[in-house]
Design a protein around this nucleic acid. Structure first.
Lengths: 241, 241
DNA sequence: TACAATTTGTGCGTATGTATA
DNA sequence: ATATACATACGCACAAATTGT
C-alpha cells in the first residue's frame, strides 16, 4: 500500500539515462557534438542495445538530445530549430513567429532583491548580474525585459562579451556550459508604467502581459529569473496543450 | 532531398495506433473503460506485443489512455487527476490549485459571430450554443467566461441538462462522446469593462488576462471556442516548459 | 552511379519482474 | 497462492537514412 519515498530500485534504463545525462552536464559531451553510437554505449555499459535505446529515447523526449537516423545522436543546442521556439511563445497576430531583436538598456552587477534571491534559490543580497533589454519584433518594440542570473555562476557576464547576442541561452550554453532545459512561466496582467511608456511607446496604463520565468538547467536548478512585460496589440502568447 | 508530402509508408505501430484511436473515437471503447490487454490486441491484429506496446505507449504519451501495471489500460476521462488540470492553468498566489465553482449567467442558442465561426470551422451564422459563466476560486470571483460550441454537435445543450456541471468537458465526453484532447490558447492583456466590473467586482480599466482557447477533439477538429477574462491579483496563469 | 559501412528506426520473439485483483 | 496485465531486459534481423569510397 505504501509507496517508498526512495524506490527500492531504479530500472536499468533510468540508471543509464542518469549516467548519460551526467556526462552531458559535466561537459564531456558538449552541445552540438555527437555522442557514441547506441551499440558502442551498450557495449561500454554492458547492457543490451534495447535498454540503451530506451535511455536515449527518454533523453530525446526531454529535448536533451536529438536523434538522426543514419547520422547519430547529437546533444541539443539552443540554435537548433526545435529548441529555438521552446521558450519563446510570442506570436504575431498573423500567426508568424519571428525571434526578436534586442537592445540592451542596463547591464550591471548588483545585489539580489528578495524576490530574485527567492526565485534563484540564492541567499539574500547575493551578487547577481542584471540585464534590461527592449526587444523588437519586426521593428516594433514589443517587450521590456529584466533578467538576473547568479554572478557566481555567470562570472563577468556584466562585462564580457562586450556585445550580448540576441539569444542569451546560446551564450549561457557555449560560454558557461549552462543549458536551459526547463522553465516555469507565471503570467499576469498589469498596467504599463513610465518605463514601458518610454521604451515601448505606449500610454501609461495600457494593459500588458507580464511573464515571470524561472529557467532551469538539466537537473532542475534555477539558472535565470526573467520578467518580461509584453504589449499585446500586435501579438499574443501562444500555448499548445 | 525532397520529402514526400504523403510518406510512402507508415510504420506498423503507427497504423495500429490509428486503428486503436479510431475504436476509441467511435465510442466502441468508452472513456473510463478498460481496453483489451496487450497480448489480446497483439493476437487480434497479428503483430508482436512489442509493436502493440509501442502504439499504446504513444497513445499514453498523448494522454488518450492511462496505463496501470497489473490492472490494464483505461481510456482517459476528464475526471482523472492528471487530465483534470491539463486544461486549467490558473493557480492561486500561494501555489495551490483548486477547480473553480461556476455560476451560469447566459445559456442560449444563437447564430455564430464571424470570430466564432472562424475558430470552430463553421460557416457564418451557423447555430451555436453560447454559455457565459462566472467562475469562483475559493469564494472569490476570478473569471468571466464565454464559450460557444456547435449546436449541431451538441444538440439541446442549451436546455439539457437543466443544471450544468462544473467541469463541462466531462459532460461533453459522457453525453456527446466528444473528448477534448488538445487545445490552443492565445493570451492577451486587456482592460476590464462594465461586464467584468459588474460580475467580478473589480474597477473598470483593471488589467485582465484574456485567454482565447480552441479546444480540439482526438482528431484535431475544433470542438469549443472559449474566451476567459481573468483577474490576476489573487492568482496567475502557470505554464511549465 | 554504384556500393559499402555506419547509425538509427522498426519489428519480432522470449524471459523475467512487479503490481493488481 | 494464482492468474492477469503491464514493465523491464535481452537478443536478433532487417529497413531506411547518411556518409564516404
Amino acid at each position: 500500500m505504501d509507496q517508498p519515498l526512495t524506490p527500492s530500485y531504479r530500472p536499468l534504463y533510468q540508471q543509464i539515462k542518469d549516467v548519460l545525462l551526467e556526462r552531458i552536464v559535466s561537459g564531456e559531451w558538449a552541445p552540438g557534438t555527437f555522442i557514441p553510437s547506441e551499440s558502442a554505449l551498450a557495449k561500454e555499459y554492458g547492457v543490451s542495445v534495447g535498454t540503451l535505446r530506451k535511455a536515449l529515447d527518454a533523453l530525446a523526449a526531454e529535448h536533451v538530445v536529438l536523434r538522426h537516423q543514419g547520422k547519430g545522436t547529437v546533444v541539443a543546442t539552443h540554435d537548433s530549430d526545435r529548441s529555438l521556439f521552446q521558450f519563446f511563445h510570442l506570436v504575431r497576430l498573423d500567426g508568424t513567429r519571428t525571434l526578436p531583436i534586442s537592445r540592451v538598456l542596463i547591464r550591471e552587477r548588483r545585489a539580489a532583491t528578495a524576490q530574485e534571491a527567492e526565485a534563484l534559490g540564492l541567499r539574500l543580497e547575493a551578487a547577481v548580474v542584471h540585464i534590461r533589454r527592449v526587444r523588437e519584433l519586426e521593428e516594433v518594440p514589443a517587450l521590456l525585459e529584466d533578467l538576473v542570473v547568479s554572478a557566481d555562476r555567470f562570472r563577468d557576464l556584466e562585462r564580457e562579451p562586450q556585445t550580448l547576442p540576441n539569444t542569451l541561452y546560446q551564450l549561457y550554453q557555449q560560454r558557461f556550459n549552462q543549458s536551459v532545459a526547463h522553465a516555469e512561466e507565471r503570467l499576469f496582467a498589469v498596467a504599463a508604467g513610465k518605463e514601458e511608456h518610454r521604451h515601448l511607446g505606449i500610454p501609461s496604463g495600457t494593459p500588458l502581459l507580464e511573464i515571470h520565468r524561472i529557467a532551469k538547467d538539466l537537473q532542475g536548478n534555477p539558472l535565470e529569473f526573467r520578467v518580461s512585460r509584453c504589449e499585446t496589440q500586435n501579438h499574443y502568447y501562444l500555448n499548445e496543450l
